[in-house]
Design a protein around this nucleic acid. Structure first.
Lengths: 358, 358
DNA sequence: CCATCGTACTGTAGCGGTATAGAAACCGAA
DNA sequence: TTCGGTTTCTATACCGCTACAGTACGATGG
């Protein structure tokens, strides 16, 4: 039994293929009586509607948008912040009818998702700014929206105020009288350990912005932080980072963390080492992961509205697609969402000088 | 400037379009010298490789597979178990070069993802067995793998031993001497509250299997459980369920929960109500969500290997696609992964009769 | 020296739709 | 009756690529 196509149905009903196509895609183009007959015939033949691939070619749209993630997609599903972001995107995308396709940055054999997967547009949420995958997307001239990336002229972008949030977090600590402060940041692709030149961290835009924010406030207070790079963004990496810090000669009284997951590890390791949080050590996170509120002590952190970020990204992408379809070329909007310091229980006034036991 | 296609390049280099196609897709079909020239010309023209949609139509494969989720995709991203499952799938899929497209069960306007999104196959992980989306996928004759669904002859499936796990959980409680036992299950699409006829719960396969398992062990011990249906699968729903139970006349000494998220809410509400867990109330979860180990008291639960489930599902799908491409029609394999009771701190021997304060 | 073979490339015929222009039939108004 | 305007359906020309069956030609072998 050969495959059922529009032609099969057309022959069966005795009309042209075009009319069958219209029956499915443009109901106003034929009488409803004929349409009924056509649909009935299609049903009888087990036709499942116009072939999506063929339609994609003819119409020039696929009905799916991509989201470019890191090499290991798994990572995106391990992180509560990332999953909330993705969830928010799909939710916002739902009414538009777009499906979301997950794209790995990595080439897989001779398949390069960013180059070879059919889609109408894409969100770039990869961390590595220089990824060749981004170059492929650009080359395809797909409507693109950058998220948590250095804003690029010509493409819409969505960011949060990483710098301002980090600055507020650091200033919170200096306001509390802390002077021996450490930073546990994320050193993607780098080895874990001490970082000599904080502002030279190679990783992505977000890492850089947060570092700049922290340093702005610390510089103002004349504080020179110890900076540790964590290889991953999970509690174990935070744990490791704290142990490195405790081994050093100038134990910090407060720690700024790149994200809540790292902060969780830092707190856990601190408690395991007999330190009291916040009495002996203040810890600040970033993101306001749901985890932050559940932790004991509840984590002081910088809140970002991940839901809003997802919604903004999805909305920006759909309008970008809409525009490119109509050939409109407005200026690309760059969204910057606010961040907010949330003070909970993991930070306290620095202990008086007596605390200077090294 | 018109679009660059194979023909553009062919004209430029002075070869046939077919040769250019081969340069990209079948390098062994031409001399490497000519191939280099073609690729160089393509590069100069800003060509980004064969158009994925056109290639999909001509080749009959798209390079993406779908995963059919519930109506609200967001839900899938809120649940730690579901995200771990998805993460595991994408990881297993990565080396095969397939991208993963997320499909909502719901129609969105006149777009029905299951019908209209190009893909080579799909995982069915929707909860609603009777979803029209599944019917669309079937109609398209796509290679399909059912996950956590009633196994269907003719299609591979991946399940865990829900029934055995539930039975072990219930027996654990009866072994501990509990006789007043309640069940907090998930009553998808139903109203929250007391369920009179536990085995008639309408929801999906998993719900049913777990219920059967629980009842098997309870029946053997002559226990008639009180059954509460929760509307969602989160802590708040568990919280609500426990309050309903405490309002009833026969307070349970132990509770079996459909999942760890519900169990968390149950425990939280119990503690809030002044009950000690496990001394006054034993609680058992299901899934072994990472959460279970983090909780205090750490949760006794039934472990399922979500990673393995994801890997098995992805593997089953790729082999199903492979087979259908080659027209092979072997018998579909039905995978059943084991579950295991993990006893932690949330269950204890039933208090002696003195505990019968109602 | 002719038959055979492998390599390198080309021509044609689709894949299964949709856009667009146009033909045929029907309608009410002038 | 004529004529513009609808409504309904059709013919044709793509969309951009790939499968497949060639053709051309130099190399191999007896």
């Amino acid at each position: 039994m050969a495959r059922v196509t529009l032609q099969t149905i057309a022959d069966r009903v005795g009309v042209s293929r075009m009319t069958v196509s219209n029956a499915f895609s443009r109901p106003d183009q034929l009488s409803s009586e004929l349409r009924e007959r056509i649909l009935a015939a299609a049903d009888a033949l087990g036709y499942s509607g116009p072939d999506p691939s063929a339609r994609a070619l003819a119409r020039g749209t696929t009905g799916a948008v991509g989201v470019l993630l890191t090499d290991s997609l798994k990572y995106a599903f391990a992180d509560e912040v990332a999953t909330a972001f993705l969830g928010s995107i799909v939710d916002e995308l739902a009414p538009t009818g777009f499906a979301l396709t997950l794209l790995s940055s990595a080439a897989q054999g001779d398949m390069i998702p960013a180059r070879d997967v059919p889609m109408d547009g894409a969100l770039v949420y990869s961390c590595d700014t220089s990824s060749p995958a981004i170059a492929w997307l650009l080359r395809r001239k797909l409507p693109l929206v950058y998220v948590d990336h250095e804003p690029e002229p010509g493409h819409p972008s969505v960011n949060i105020d990483d710098r301002g949030g980090a600055r507020a977090a650091a200033q919170h600590l200096t306001d509390l009288g802390h002077r021996r402060i450490a930073i546990v940041t994320w050193n993607y692709m780098g080895l874990p350990g001490l970082i000599a030149d904080p502002l030279a961290v190679t990783a992505g835009h977000v890492t850089k912005q947060r570092m700049i924010g922290w340093m702005e406030a610390l510089d103002k207070a004349g504080v020179h932080p110890t900076v540790i790079g964590a290889e991953r963004m999970d509690a174990d990496a935070g744990d490791l980072a704290l142990r490195l810090l405790l081994d050093g000669d100038a134990r910090p009284t407060a720690i700024l963390c790149f994200c809540d997951a790292l902060a969780q590890g830092v707190v856990r390791a601190a408690i395991d080492s007999g330190l009291r949080v916040p009495q002996d050590l203040s810890v600040v996170g970033f993101d306001d992961n749901p985890l932050a509120e559940r932790m004991r002590p509840a984590l002081t952190t910088v809140r970002q509205d991940v839901e809003a970020k997802g919604r903004a990204a999805a909305a920006a992408l759909t309008t970008a697609i809409e525009r490119s379809k109509r050939g409109v070329t407005n200026r690309a909007r760059h969204v910057l969402l606010p961040t907010e310091l949330v003070v909970r229980e993991s930070t306290a006034r620095a202990a008086p000088v007596s605390g200077r036991r090294s």
